[in-house]
């Protein structure tokens, strides 16, 4: 209609506005990229050095009389960390296997087993430990700090850390007997754990 009223010359977007727009876009894309990277990356990977962490232990499930687990105390030993919860059914399938493996290595003193009870309630957790006769160290993951450190995606997951504190193997899902197509047991759960731990002891 009356374009001439606006006599100001046609101007582009002011520089400061352009800078803000692009900065915002880049920032947003960066955040999404990092978030995406994180979600794609999954759990901590073998070869990663595991940061020191500590975990309070359930009474009756202490380690060497200490009511707190500190990873730093166990340099020079193989550390097996198992994440579980009392409401998790697959965890029950492997509970006995873990306990049996622990019994195998306990006398040597070269291997430490740690159960991390992921978002759970104490009475149910204790009932679970009792039900499966677990004797190795166990504690609640207060504030989900440890599970976030390992970026676990579910339970059960088991992490094997070598004597230098480097993660060497990650087991996603339970240790259950491997069966071939005829239904014969190819390798039982305990042996699967042994196959992972034994090379780390050398």
């Amino acid at each position: 209609m009356t374009e001439n009223i606006n006599t100001a010359p046609h101007r582009g977007v002011p520089l400061w506005a352009q800078i803000i727009i692009w900065a915002f876009l880049v920032g947003l894309l960066a955040i999404v990229a990092i978030g995406l990277n994180r979600s794609q990356q999954g759990t901590v990977q073998p070869g990663d050095k595991i940061k020191d962490f500590s975990l309070p232990l359930f009474s009756g499930y202490e380690l060497n009389g200490k009511s707190q687990f500190d990873l730093a105390d166990h340099r020079g030993k193989v550390v097996v960390i198992n994440f579980w919860a009392s409401w998790c059914k697959p965890c029950e399938q492997e509970a006995a296997n873990l306990e049996n493996a622990w019994k195998l290595y306990e006398p040597s003193g070269e291997v430490v087993f740690l159960g991390v009870d992921y978002v759970d309630t104490e009475p149910e957790a204790r009932a679970y430990l009792k039900k499966f006769g677990i004797t190795f160290a166990n504690g609640p993951d207060v504030g989900t700090k440890v599970s976030q450190l390992f970026r676990i995606k579910g339970v059960p997951e088991t992490y094997f850390i070598d004597k230098d504190g480097v993660l060497r193997y990650v087991q996603i899902g339970p240790f259950v007997d491997k069966v071939d197509s005829q239904g014969n047991v190819v390798m039982d759960g305990v042996s699967q754990i042994q196959v992972i731990i034994d090379p780390l002891l050398k």
Partner: peptide
Amino acid sequence: FFAFIGATFITSIALVIYRWPELRGETE
């Protein structure tokens, strides 16, 4: 998906900035 989003956002914004002067309003 991320690459697609980045490409479309950047192209769209660049185009708007490029055509900004021609998009001025006609009345007040």
